[in-house]
Simulated assay, not measured.
Amino acid sequence: MESQDPAVAEAVKASGESNLEKATARAKETLDQLMNVSLNIAVTGKTGSGKSTFINEFRGLDEDEDGAARTGITETTMEVTMYEHPTMPNVKIWDLPGIGSPTFKANKYLKDVKFHTYDFFIIISSERFTENDVMLAKEIKKQKKNFYFVRSKIDNDIRAEERKKGFDEQNVLCKIRKDCLKNLEELGDPNIFLISSFDLEKYDFEKLQNILTEELPDHKRSALLQAWPVCSADSLEKKIKMFQGVIWAASLASAGIAVIPVPGLSAACDASMVILFFTKCYYAFGLDDRSLKRLSEKVNKPLLEHVAKSKFVSAVKEKALTRLQVSAALATLATVEYFASLLPGVGSAAAAGISFGTTYCLLKQGLNELADIARKIREEAELDTLCSN
């Protein structure tokens, strides 16, 4: 019996499976969750509560961009409207009319908005939560789904109060939170998240992310983390950790393919997998041109220097050329794997070990570079300094 490469054996063990074939199947399932799992988020609230602004900021779009949710003080949501995330099309945000609106009566609201479509509900208010909000939460709870109360436009409240003598921001936030809880006391002690859609780095936006990632099923968590805006240094590190956690899966899938004695098969699959992995990192870390442009305008600083120097960012931007370059770079590897796989006794083990090691190192190197760039950009933008102030 052929001996297995130690690195591959360790990855198989870490997968919880008994052999390479089963571990490879588990790895492919993990990758599929990273790349393709769907997530449907429902956002509801009355007219003027800030739903559309929240949706646009979550998706990284300005209100005047193509595909942005319409904003305004009049009723802009007269029907259920779905918005795809621009870089994560499997993540969909649904803008629901406020409960009790003329078109959507409270007593049949959940049926009319197709309740079972959504993974969880965000109930937004820019003022006090109402009886309709409480009723909706109760019905959602009956159906065993989660809901989250978001008190929006906190920046407006702070500006209104800071002109007063003895202003203390924490006291204002505490007062708002207590007022919200008073109106929701029928529900016990629900979590309430205070946010400003125009300043996601402040208040409770990251806390909302933390609660969601804790309460979502594992297979939905990766979709949320990829789509969620980078709102803090900790938020970025969560994304990095998630991608670090799936490198083994991509490498193990590569190892499983390498044992098949078909010339070039492993290299072609590796090239495609590597490019897709880096593309996911690129958008999740906010390294794309649109995200950097918005951030640069927000902090009034140019932030493109490190990105321009990155070979991995260039690789993502020039997908067609890079696919050829990666394939060419792996062509020699493919030949080595092919002949190794034909050797009696140790062939497939050697091929799997070569493919696993090469893919693992390449993904780790690229992820580290992209993560470091994202950290440097955040540091130069002084976002975390602003947050601490």
Rank of each mutant, 00 (worst) to 15 (best):
D95I: 06
I257A: 01
N19E: 07
E382F: 04
E379T: 13
E297R: 13
S126N: 13
L187C: 07
Y203M: 12
L342C: 09
P217R: 08
V230P: 04
I240M: 01
K13G: 12
K293Q: 10
I176F: 03
K28V: 00
H306R: 13
K108P: 00
A374W: 00
E169Q: 15
A268K: 11
A271W: 08
N191H: 05
E201T: 10
G60M: 09
A329D: 11
I240Y: 04
L173E: 11
E379P: 03
I124L: 14
N40L: 07
A271R: 06
V259Y: 02
D372N: 14
F104C: 00
R294Y: 01
G16S: 10
S251E: 07
H116R: 12
I55L: 10
G256R: 09
A160E: 12
A340R: 05
N132T: 07
A268W: 06
L343A: 15
Q170F: 07
E162F: 09
V172Y: 01
P102V: 06
L184P: 11
I211M: 12
I195Y: 03
K164L: 14
T74R: 03
N90Y: 08
K28Q: 02
F193G: 01
L303K: 02
V230M: 07
F278E: 05
Q244G: 10
V37Q: 15
D119T: 06
T358R: 12
E2Q: 14
A381D: 02
Y148W: 01
P89N: 14
G357F: 02
E84K: 15
P190H: 01
Q170E: 10
Q170W: 05
E21V: 00
T359L: 05
R375G: 03
G98F: 07
L225H: 11
N19Y: 00
Y338G: 03
M82E: 13
F356A: 01
D95S: 06
L370A: 06
I158E: 09
L295N: 01
N90E: 14
G98W: 10
I373Q: 03
K175R: 09
